[in-house]
Design a protein around this nucleic acid. Structure first.
Lengths: 192, 192
DNA sequence: TTCAAACATAAACAATTGTTGATTAAAAAA
DNA sequence: TTTTTTAATCAACAATTGTTTATGTTTGAA
């Protein structure tokens, strides 16, 4: 007895529509229309519109945290850990681009208390990333940098990846090649 | 006879509120409430809610384009041009953080034909940035890179600056120090 | 003082939106 | 076959929202 196929279909279509139009601009009637049934039927699948956002955001957030925790708990050298965090990000973004797009663009639409919970999760992730950088600096693997700036710069530089794997992003980038170039950039910059 | 102080106050308060709550979530009544008058009075200052968004977005977009065009038209060496583009971005983001925040977060709420116009402006800017990188690669100043990836990475890594200059961003970063670290990162990466 | 511009309010509008309740049909499980 | 889930519809709701119209007040320049 698998989880209702119809429910899964409903959620996937919701996800894509919210990605296209934005959460606030997507109405329950928009979603129902695309699936070919009446609005009210949607509430056989979900409790509220908010629930759609919440489930996608927290599920994907957990994926990021699990991968971060695995890497942090390993014995790899610090530069290898940084590579793996970037690699994990590309993997998740290429496998679930629409969910990642929601994380980037629609988290503001969460309501309390989910909003605060989500922001805290995000802060924790950034904190761990900053710790990783700090360890690299202390061990003289990375150059001296302002942790706050470096964290923001590096995380921002990888945040847009999802765009290359949604259908509206024109080109379809090879994840392996993307990873190679990003890591080279983060480690060595643009100079020869 | 200066342009109505009250109108300027109205627009500034709108800008901040839209930054805080998002464009869709900000109602005309929210703005009027904060200014202490009735909704309908707002329409003595503006023609429509959309107009608020449009005016801020296109005005600030023009600032970026003007500075980009000035730099492109100069005779500086290519690596110096890249530095200046980054520097100009920091300058605009630190002077008008709320406007830049709107550019980053609320452009999706534009309606046609403004939406398409804005996206085209954005594409043009990225195109010029890519041309700059390409020239640097051809002249063996920058290493060989995929232009599409490099453009996205570098522009993303500088897009968040506004956050350090809005009041909700906690710390207040020194623009000079920020610029130094960013340029060092973009040119040389994190390795020693 | 006169007069236009700027500033303000009250009332209402039409449309949209998330959600509920009652009910029925179909499908799956017992 | 009976019974329970699942899937669907129709109608309606209460609230919100952008905007308009008509009207009144304040103010600064002529």
């Amino acid at each position: 007895m698998k989880v209702s196929t119809k429910k899964e279909e409903f959620l996937q279509e919701s996800l894509k529509l919210i990605h296209e139009k934005g959460f606030k601009a997507t109405t329950m009637r928009d979603i129902a229309d695309r699936l070919g049934f009446d609005v009210s039927n949607s509430y056989n699948y979900i409790k509220s519109k908010q629930e759609i956002l919440e489930s996608f955001l927290f599920r994907t957030s957990n994926e990021f945290h699990d991968s971060m925790n695995n890497i942090m708990g390993s014995n790899y050298p610090i530069d290898e850990k940084l590579k793996q965090v970037i690699s994990a990000h590309i993997k998740i973004a290429s496998q679930r681009p629409y969910e990642v797009a929601l994380m980037v663009n629609e988290w503001r639409n969460l309501k309390e208390p989910k909003y605060t919970q989500y922001v805290e999760l995000r802060d924790t992730y950034e904190q761990k990333f900053g710790d990783l950088l700090k360890e690299g600096i202390d061990n003289h693997i990375f150059k001296a940098m302002d942790i706050e700036i470096a964290t923001a710069v590096i995380l921002s530089s990888i945040r847009w990846f999802y765009d290359k794997y949604t259908n509206d992003g024109k080109s379809n980038l090879n994840p392996i090649e993307l990873e190679r170039q990003i890591i080279d950039f983060v480690f060595n910059g643009v100079l020869l």
